[in-house]
Design a protein around this nucleic acid. Structure first.
Length: 186
DNA sequence: GACCGGATTGGC
DNA sequence: CCAATCCGGTCC
């Protein structure tokens, strides 16, 4: 599911504003109770991660480090709490609006607008008000894109999960090779 | 109710 | 390397 999300278009709509959107180029799979890096590790079930236990195709948005949001796609649900973290998109629609939200130096390249999960959420104005929304019909939607040749997909360990013991090294991060919008290790 | 640390980011 | 900044998970 994580691999399949690469190449899809993530669209953010706000009434009275131009839409903003981009192509997904970096994701990570979080594989439920057995995965010590997952918010549902060891069957944890709390108000924060509750939507991971619900139906698939919804947004799981959480707030972290006191200042950043992260956006996930719930992939299994109904008792199987797994999700895919979306870490980067290539800005495609409403690029100027995304730039306004980021307040970056005007000389910064477009590929920096939504590189990294926190930056992506800022660029698309994603916050906890979108936690639980249906990604097929809501202010945040995902649309099929062109499929990627396997040769263009890179894999690595996930970012920022060094605490997860044996699961820290699992190669469950997927990204588009050579794409500058992908966060650090490309 | 206290305490600890985070699926990050950007600056030094 | 480290500060920013606040919420949630955990334990008492």
């Amino acid at each position: 599911m994580a691999r399949d999300l690469l190449g899809c278009l993530l669209v953010r709509r706000i009434p009275g504003e131009q839409a903003t959107a981009g192509t997904i180029v970096e994701v990570e799979a979080y594989r439920g109770p057995r995965d010590l890096a997952c918010h549902t590790a060891r069957g944890r079930r709390t108000a924060r991660n509750e939507v991971m236990y619900g139906p698939p195709g919804r947004a799981y948005v959480y707030f972290t480090y006191g200042m950043h949001h992260c956006f996930n796609v719930v992939t299994r649900g109904e008792g199987i709490p797994e999700a895919v973290l979306v870490r980067a998109i290539v800005p495609v629609i409403g690029v100027a609006r995304m730039r306004e939200r980021r307040e970056l130096d005007p000389s910064a390249a477009d590929f920096r607008l939504a590189r990294g999960p926190g930056n992506l959420c800022r660029a698309l104005a994603i916050d906890r008000s979108l936690n639980g929304v249906d990604l097929a019909r809501s202010a945040l939607t995902i649309h099929a894109g062109q499929s990627l040749p396997a040769a263009e997909v890179g894999r690595s360990a996930r970012i920022g999960v060094a605490y997860a013991g044996p699961y820290a090294a699992k190669p469950w991060r997927f990204y588009v090779r050579g794409e500058p919008a992908v966060s650090v290790p490309r």
